[in-house]
Design a protein around this nucleic acid. Structure first.
Length: 624
RNA sequence: GGGGGCGUGGCGAAGCUGGUUUAUCGCGCCGGCCUGUCAAGCCGGAGAUCGCGGGUUCAAGCCCCGUCGCUCCCGCCA
């Protein structure tokens, strides 16, 4: 089909172009037909320009204009005309002009749309994914993918400027026991053998350090066969980074610099030169999570010893049970935490209804809290007078009112929420979930509603000093909390085997606004130390040799001290775009069941393909 | 593996405790009118076995059981 190629885009023309002869190519975004005169809003990636078909236009042009419908792809030949003052549209970049059409050519037609192309579609996500090519025409999706492009570009610029090489690593790799399930690729040439898609380029980037590459990065696709979430997809993208001859703070400073550059360049946002650093234990204590939203404070407090002096049996039982477990573990030389009673003071919310409190309790119960106690600091209390507690659990605090209120720093009209559990982690996590819910419900991170909230839209922090090992109760073994190549902090090296539970790793996570944005560590480069870690997590020498032999082999040849980190590109862009789902910043995401509704993937394959791959499929039995 | 929410014309929603319908509204679609709109307006029209299957009932979009799909979350995700 012959057609006139565009002379400018639909977002480019301004008043200065008045009189110019132009050709526009684009899609019919909106059409307004007044019988005589009619208007077409023509759209492309760059913007929208109003095309006018005047009342005195020739017959052919009028007829073509009549035919136009939503999303027809057309080529318009015309000239730029300044709009009269009263008809200027200040909401449009091109609102001072319009293009008077001399001719319109229909390049292709469009059926009735499954949903309208707007700034943001209001269609169900299911439909948006099925017709992703239409959804991607929206300015919302176009803007987000543009941002993603800009961010990736800025990352490359910054890291290249710091002397990093971008090096590709294989996507068909050896399956290694690294936590998540692997996606497997069967091998035609080797019956019964499989490649795995990488969960991350972890082993390769470490080997690149052994290779002397010194500074490596890669914007790498990673694959994990686990259930999806709003911020988790089966395939996702990491900004994978590794450096030699570094300590923890070198990595943190590098990422601080990189984030600063990226935010400044793409959003024009100035980040602090240095991010706050918070110990893992402290984060759990104060916020009940290792990825706290620090745009607002409302920190949790520990009732501790005061809880024992109340007449609240549930509190005392939880603490007693936790203490008994801790002591029993300690007798075996294992560090385990006991119970805890955590409290949250919700400022000025003594007017919360029973129902509202129950909704908060439900949030706590998701994380296995048995319940949530509450009471109110009586708003009626006289200033300077003794504080009074009322409602809920207040009766158990008889005689302790003043002490409690002072200890918590509560004031008249506040709501106090408490969770007790024999496992400190459960108490913290569940009350932390309540904190998060309150943050969302009350908009605590919004400075316009809460003056005490952070004025920053993006609150970064480093979480450091993670535990190295976690006790796996089901299998009664120690698992590595991060991965097996993480360096335990130096001072714990003597007691690795005798007390794994107390060991901190040289580990760090970057968090922002309640999301984990990056995770990294200093790695082990000493084969002897590596062997000790394998042993603690129950890896026999042979097993370690079989699974990671190539790495331990490489480490025999002068490996440098090294470490790295991997910020998640999808989550980063998601947060920068103000979204809560990474699907909004991925062109073709999978749905929550790992299916791509557009191309109906995954799908069955022909028998001869299976035969070639030496595969036989067994199906789960029907009906359970 | 578990929990919450949802499923009603092409799209988004309403339909309270079963009985007023011919299942409602907005957008879109089709036809008509209209010379300055920009979410154009006005008039008219078509379009739905209320996800699917079963049950209770004189009567089911609404109640019960089952099932499928979507979505958020817990588990899982070093």
């Amino acid at each position: 089909m012959e057609y006139r190629k565009r002379s400018s885009t639909c977002g480019a023309l301004r008043k200065a172009d008045t009189g110019a002869a132009v050709v526009l190519n684009g899609w019919v975004h909106r059409r307004r037909d007044h019988g005589g005169i009619s208007f077409v809003n023509l759209r492309d990636r760059y913007g929208i320009t109003q095309v006018v078909v005047d009342a005195d236009a020739d017959e052919t042009l009028r007829k073509t204009a009549d035919e136009l419908k939503f999303e027809y792809c057309v080529s318009v030949v015309g000239r730029v005309r300044a709009r009269p003052d009263s008809m200027v549209n200040k909401d449009m970049d091109t609102g001072e002009i319009e293009v008077v059409a001399d001719s319109i050519q229909i390049l292709s037609r469009c059926e009735t749309l499954p949903f309208m192309i707007d700034e943001e579609s209001d269609a169900k996500e299911e439909l948006r994914l099925k017709y992703r090519y239409l959804d991607l025409r929206s300015f919302g999706m176009q803007r987000r993918l543009a941002l993603r492009h800009e961010v990736a570009l800025a990352v490359r610029e910054h890291l290249a400027g710091q002397g990093f090489y971008e090096i590709e690593t294989p996507t068909f790799i050896k399956s290694t026991p690294e936590g998540a399930r692997d996606y497997l690729v069967p091998s035609r040439l080797y019956p019964g053998k499989f490649y795995a898609l990488p969960q991350s380029p972890q082993l390769y980037k470490q080997i690149l350090m052994v290779s002397g590459m010194d500074k490596y990065f890669q914007i790498a696709r990673c694959y994990r066969d686990e259930d999806a979430r709003g911020d988790r997809q089966p395939e996702f993208t990491q900004i994978d980074i590794e450096m030699s001859f570094v300590k923890r703070d070198d990595i943190l400073e590098l990422v601080e610099g990189m984030m600063g550059y990226v935010f400044k360049k793409t959003l024009g946002v100035e980040l602090p030169a240095r991010f706050r650093r918070l110990g893992f234990d402290e984060a759990i204590d104060l916020y009940g999570t290792d990825k706290p939203d620090l745009r607002f404070a409302m920190e949790m407090q520990d009732l501790g010893e005061l809880a024992l002096r109340t007449s609240f049996q549930a509190f005392k039982d939880a603490l007693a049970e936790g203490e008994a477990r801790r002591v029993a573990a300690a007798a075996k030389g294992v560090t385990q935490e006991g119970g805890a009673v955590k409290a949250l003071v919700v400022s000025g919310k003594a007017d919360y209804s029973r129902k509202q409190i129950e909704e908060l309790e439900a949030a706590a119960k998701i994380y296995r809290a048995k319940g949530m106690a509450w009471m109110k600091v009586s708003p009626a209390a006289e200033a300077g007078g003794a504080p009074r507690l009322e409602g809920g659990a207040s009766k158990f605090f008889a005689g302790l009112e003043a002490e409690l209120v002072a200890a918590l720093g509560a004031k008249a009209g506040d709501l106090i929420l408490m969770v007790a559990d024999a496992r400190k982690r459960v108490a913290c996590q569940s009350l932390g979930a309540v904190r998060s819910k309150l943050g969302k419900d009350l908009g605590l991170y919004d400075p316009s509603r809460h003056p005490e909230a952070s004025a920053k839209r993006f609150e970064f922090a480093w979480i450091v000093d993670f535990p190295m090992f976690e006790w796996n109760e089901d299998e009664a073994t120690w698992d590595t909390a991060h991965h097996m190549f993480t360096m335990p902090q130096e001072r714990y090296h003597p007691t690795l085997e005798s007390d794994p539970g107390s060991v901190k790793g040289d580990l760090y996570d970057l968090v922002m606004n309640g999301f984990e944005l990056a995770s990294g560590s200093i790695r082990i480069h000493d084969p002897e130390l590596q062997k000790r870690i394998f042993t603690i997590v129950g890896f026999s020498e042979e097993e370690g040799q079989k699974k990671f032999g190539f790495l331990t082999e490489a480490f025999k040849y002068g490996p440098p001290p090294h470490g790295g980190i991997a910020p998640g590109l999808d989550r980063l862009v998601m947060l920068m775009a103000g979204e809560t789902s990474i699907k909004e910043v991925i062109a073709f995401p999978k749905n929550s069941f790992a299916v791509s509704p557009m191309d109906d993937c995954p799908s069955e394959v022909d028998q001869h393909q299976l035969d070639e791959l030496h595969l036989r499929v067994t199906y789960p039995e029907a009906g359970k």
